[in-house]
Computed example of a mutant assay.
Amino acid sequence: MKPESLSQLTDQELEIKLKSLKNNKIIDATLIGLSFGIVCYALINKGLGLFSILPIIFAYIVLRNSKNNKLLENEIQKEMNSRIIK
């Protein structure tokens, strides 16, 4: 989301967006933990194979997306703080 579009949102919409980003953190952490659990299980039972590589790739994608969400969360916080000051 671009900063121009953040300035067009109302305060309530920004709060809703921020709350959904915080919920996404929990979901992302759960998915990453589940992925690494699957990797450990697959490595112990079957060794290195397709089922041990795919969850690692999936966890990387989730991590990369969560970094983008963190940047968006910071931009929303800055926008909310600038509205309070004005």
Score class of each variant (00 low, 15 high):
K19M: 12
K19Q: 14
K19F: 15
S20H: 08
S20K: 12
L21H: 06
L21Q: 06
L21V: 07
L21C: 05
K22Q: 13
K22M: 06
K22V: 12
N23H: 10
N23G: 09
N23K: 09
N24C: 10
N24E: 15
N24Q: 15
K25L: 11
K25F: 05
I26N: 06
I26H: 08
I26M: 12
I27S: 12
I27H: 12
I27T: 15
D28T: 08
D28Q: 13
A29F: 02
T30S: 11
T30I: 10
T30N: 13
L31V: 10
L31D: 05
L31K: 10
I32Y: 08
I32H: 07
I32Q: 10
I32G: 07
I32R: 05
G33R: 15
G33D: 14
G33S: 13
L34V: 13
S35P: 10
F36L: 14
F36C: 06
G37I: 01
G37W: 10
G37S: 10
I38C: 09
I38E: 05
I38A: 11
I38L: 13
I38R: 07
I38H: 00
V39F: 02
V39K: 01
V39E: 06
V39S: 04
C40Y: 05
C40K: 01
C40L: 15
C40M: 13
C40E: 14
C40P: 00
Y41S: 15
Y41N: 15
Y41Q: 07
A42G: 13
A42P: 04
A42I: 08
A42H: 09
L43V: 01
I44R: 07
I44G: 09
I44P: 09
I44N: 08
I44Y: 07
N45C: 07
N45D: 14
N45R: 13
N45W: 00
N45F: 00
K46G: 11
K46H: 11
K46I: 08
G47A: 09
G47R: 07
G47F: 00
G47M: 09
L48R: 06
L48M: 09
L48K: 06
G49Y: 05
G49F: 00
G49H: 03
G49M: 02
G49E: 11
L50N: 10
L50A: 08
F51G: 01
F51K: 00
F51A: 02
F51H: 04
F51Y: 15
F51R: 01
S52I: 09
S52Q: 03
S52E: 06
S52F: 02
L54Q: 00
L54C: 02
P55N: 02
P55L: 01
I56F: 04
I56K: 02
I56M: 10
I56D: 00
I56S: 02
I57W: 09
F58E: 03
F58K: 04
F58Q: 07
A59C: 04
A59N: 03
A59Y: 06
Y60N: 05
I61F: 14
I61C: 13
V62N: 02
V62M: 07
V62P: 02
V62H: 03
L63D: 02
L63V: 11
R64W: 00
R64T: 04
R64G: 04
N65G: 13
N65L: 08
N65H: 11
N65F: 01
S66H: 14
S66M: 10
S66E: 08
K67E: 06
K67F: 10
K67M: 11
K67I: 15
K67P: 01
N68K: 14
N68I: 15
N68A: 08
N68T: 14
N69M: 04
N69Y: 09
N69K: 10
N69D: 15
